[in-house]
Amino acid sequence: MTMQSQDIVKRSATTRPSPSVRHGVEVAKLIDTSTCIGCKACQVACAEWNDLKEEIGDHVGIYENPLDLTANTWTLMRFAEVEPEEYEFDWLIRKDGCLHCGDPGCLQACPAPGAIVKHANGIVDFVSENCVGCGYCIAGCPFDIPRRSAKDNRVYKCTLCSDRVAVGLEPICVKTCPTGCISFGSKEQMKARAQERVGHLKARGYANAGVYDPEGVGGTHVMYVLKHADQPELYEGLPKDPKIATSVALWSGLKPFTAGLMGLAALGAFVHYFAVGPNEVEDDEEETGKTRAAPAASKED
């Protein structure tokens, strides 16, 4: 982890507040899918900067390569041939990867203290040395992003190049993109830029153009400009109204409640011992073989 501990505003499995003296500017990456040409330069740059090596796979006749995100592929170009309306063909390309949610489901589900952190600038990062390998973050993510490595039992995903951003550089995918369709800056700047792009697209006849910055997960620090913002599912299953699943919220919400009830039950037993006391076989019961029905006067206190 290259950012300072003062930059962490949210930490997994941590009940006391995180350091919050800093009020860093929130950053965002904006991916304008309308100007992406699918060259995969970002994918290669990501592997190179992060020193990741994907296994050589098989070609199955589609453009995606590899076929899915993995522990070694943190960003992936996804290609979709769709008919947004009848008799209208469109070829949509989307750079998939972590969206760095304002309210990260992975972080909420994680049981390992400090294995997932959210920085003041909005970056959600996995701290591998604290990761226990339980995979709960995979269940917590509304976008199906984190991937577990079989080699080291840890889960990985895009860091938004937190190491580069910490020293004032843009993420490597942004630097590499030859068409300029990926841009990086403050979230406010990127929102303004996105609106500008949406305006252009609308002027060109894409009436449903819009920004993907879903409210349900507290907004994201990776946003998309979509020509068909009304149907994000067209872009290889981008969820329309993503939010942390009710079951995940229930799962993590029940845990403190459960721990509390266990504590209360143990306390109840403790109190019972001193209020009522143990139930012993009295000497007279032992010696005389009294019948059960005989009242034990000593207990009527």
């Binding site: 589900a109 995979g135 079989a150 799962w251």
Partner: peptide
């Protein structure tokens, strides 16, 4: 159960399993 069994289940099943595991542990 990572890594052996969890990947065989749909994500919705894993999520509900989390809830069931906590409640039955209680």
């Amino acid at each position: 159960w990572q890594p052996w069994f969890a990947p065989m289940f749909p994500i919705g099943v894993v999520r509900v399993a989390g809830v069931v595991h906590v409640l039955s542990a209680l």
